Simulated assay, not measured.
Amino acid sequence: MTNNFQVVLGKGGNDLALIYEYMENGNLKEHLSGKRRGSTLNWSSRLKIAIESALGIEYLHIGCKPPMVHRDVKSTNILISKTFEAKLADFGLSRSFLVGSNTHVSTNVAGTFGYLDPEYYQKNWLTEKSNVYSFGIVLLEIITGQPVIEQSREKSYIVEWAKSMLANGDIDSIMDPNLHREYDTSSSWKALELAMSCVNPCSTERPNMTRVAHELNECLEIYEKFIKRSQDANPTNSMGHGTSFISDTPSAR
Results as ranks from 00 to 15, higher is better:
M175W: 00
M175S: 04
M175V: 09
M175H: 00
D176S: 00
D176W: 11
D176V: 02
D176L: 03
P177A: 02
P177T: 06
N178P: 08
N178Y: 00
L179G: 00
H180V: 07
H180G: 04
H180K: 07
H180M: 12
R181K: 12
R181I: 00
R181M: 03
R181W: 02
R181D: 01
R181F: 06
E182D: 01
E182V: 09
Y183R: 02
Y183L: 04
Y183M: 02
D184H: 04
D184I: 03
D184S: 01
D184N: 03
T185A: 11
T185C: 05
S186A: 10
S186N: 06
S186W: 04
S186R: 03
S186G: 09
S187A: 07
S187I: 09
S187N: 02
S187V: 06
S188G: 13
S188K: 02
S188P: 05
W189Q: 10
W189D: 11
W189E: 10
K190P: 07
K190L: 08
K190A: 03
K190Q: 05
K190E: 09
A191H: 04
A191K: 03
A191V: 08
A191C: 01
A191S: 02
L192V: 13
L192A: 07
L192T: 11
L192W: 02
E193G: 10
E193D: 11
E193Y: 05
E193A: 11
E193T: 10
L194C: 12
L194G: 11
A195Y: 09
M196D: 09
M196R: 10
M196E: 12
M196I: 15
S197P: 03
C198L: 13
C198R: 08
C198G: 02
C198A: 03
C198S: 06
V199Y: 04
V199I: 14
V199N: 10
V199A: 13
V199Q: 02
V199K: 11
N200F: 13
N200W: 11
N200P: 14
N200R: 11
N200H: 11
N200G: 08
P201H: 01
P201I: 11
P201K: 05
P201S: 06
P201G: 10
P201C: 07
C202F: 15
C202W: 15
S203P: 14
S203E: 14
S203Y: 12
S203W: 14
S203F: 15
S203K: 15
S203A: 15
S203T: 15
T204K: 14
T204P: 00
T204C: 13
T204I: 14
T204N: 09
T204D: 10
